[in-house]
């Protein structure tokens, strides 16, 4: 049966080739590549940082995917990623779950975000306080006229539950549940796109998403000034001072979690992010460099000198 014989031989050759290819590529992965996964707020920022880093050190390859902070943290717990980007601190339950699997999550703070509340440019409402924002997202206010706008139903955009920003916003602003009518968008960029087209829209996005490559605010949207309560005046997250000092009520550090104190290539990359060059890049991307207090936290972990 020469035909069958040939089939078996070619099959065997194919199999050997396949296994060699897989084992080779696996080694390649172990040696040089860093896997980063998680926060959608951070994904473009870290992408940019890694591009610059890889240009300097071409033998390092960094693969970044988004999917939300929850997705990144789940991947870290399941040892499927080296770094988990997260726009919120890990929950206690997650830390316990990680420890049960022998994973030791270490929180590194590498950038500052002033979570922006954005509306359509044509909306006359330019400033709100936190309570008003909370009422809109909780569904207690459903018409813009209640907060000094035109008689128009609000059209509210948020993220999905796997988003760190979804959790951060719920826990710090709403302190309750989102209204079911809030649209759960797949990514931050989708919120920006939807708000640009929707005259009654309000949504929350990381500050890096409201500026384009030239550093100008994206057309058709307005970044609201935000006050912590009815008695204070609203401040803009576009002024770095407001975010750094915490005067802007939604200033928050952005995290990267590693399994144990990072070493080798991963440590070098994190150190690059925290270096002057890295922090300058972060500012160029629309986010803000971390304050000395956050830097002190990173130093206490032993990541930087």
């Amino acid at each position: 049966m020469p035909y069958n014989f040939r089939l078996i031989i070619s099959g065997a050759i194919f199999f050997v080739m396949l296994t060699t290819m897989i084992s080779c590529s696996k080694k390649e992965v172990d040696k040089h590549s860093i896997q980063i996964k998680g926060s959608d707020t951070e994904v473009n920022l870290v992408q940019r940082l890694s591009e610059v880093y890889m240009e300097k050190l071409p033998d390092v390859s960094i693969a970044i995917t988004g999917g939300g902070s929850g997705t990144g943290i789940a991947a870290l717990i399941n040892r499927q990623t080296d770094i988990a980007n997260s726009s919120r601190p890990m929950k206690n339950a997650e830390i316990e779950q990680a420890k049960a699997k022998g994973v030791e999550p270490v929180p590194i703070m590498f950038a500052l975000d002033g979570l922006a509340i954005i509306t359509h440019e044509s909306l006359p409402v330019k400033s709100l306080n936190l309570d008003e924002v909370a009422s809109i997202f909780k569904g207690e206010i459903t018409n813009w006229s209640k907060v000094g706008g035109p008689d128009m139903e609000t059209s509210v955009y948020g993220r999905q539950s796997n988003s760190g920003t979804f959790v951060y916003f719920r826990d710090t602003v709403l302190k309750g549940d989102y209204a079911p009518s809030v649209r759960r968008m797949n990514g931050t960029a989708q919120i920006v796109e939807a708000v640009r087209k929707d005259k009654a829209a309000i949504g929350y996005v990381g500050i890096g998403y409201v500026v384009n490559e030239e550093g100008n605010i994206i057309s058709d949207i307005n970044v609201l000034n935000l006050a912590s309560d009815a008695n204070t005046t609203g401040v803009s997250p576009l002024e770095s001072e407001n975010v750094k000092s915490g005067k802007y009520p939604l200033s928050r550090p952005l995290f990267q979690y590693t399994n144990g104190i990072p070493t080798g290539k991963i440590l070098e990359f994190v150190q690059f992010e925290l270096s002057d060059e890295g922090q300058k890049l972060i500012e160029k991307e629309g986010y803000y460099p971390i304050t000395s207090r956050h830097m002190e936290h990173n130093r206490s972990l032993g990541i930087i000198k």
Binding site: G67, G68, G70, A74, E94, Q160, S161, N162
Partner: peptide, 15 residues
């Protein structure tokens, strides 16, 4: 939000 969308959105992050 349909059933399929709910499954797709939430299965990725659920513990």
């Amino acid at each position: 939000r349909t059933m399929t969308a709910t499954i797709a959105i939430e299965l990725g992050e659920v513990p």
